[in-house]
């Protein structure tokens, strides 16, 4: 949960940078979309709560 909170904080700060990057990439997201997504991510029990390990995405512990 602590990490998710950090995740959300990071989201709030980094939206502009990411939005720029996405426009450069194939998916086009708006800043509002990002915020909505962040809340969804925080409420879902998916990935995102773990420390990155060796460039693979581990399945959830919970």
């Amino acid at each position: 949960m602590v990490k998710l909170k950090k995740l959300i904080t990071a989201g709030a700060l980094g939206v502009t940078v990411l939005a720029g990057g996405f426009m450069a990439g194939s998916a086009l997201h708006t800043a509002t979309d990002h915020n909505d997504t962040l809340h969804q991510v925080a409420s879902d029990d998916t990935y995102g709560t773990q420390t990155v390990k060796d460039r693979t995405v581990l399945p959830p512990a919970r």
Partner: peptide, 13 residues
């Protein structure tokens, strides 16, 4: 990258 939500581990990795 199209599918992964921004700020998730999947997206970053």
């Amino acid at each position: 990258l199209e599918l992964a939500e921004p700020y998730t581990e999947s997206h970053a990795v």
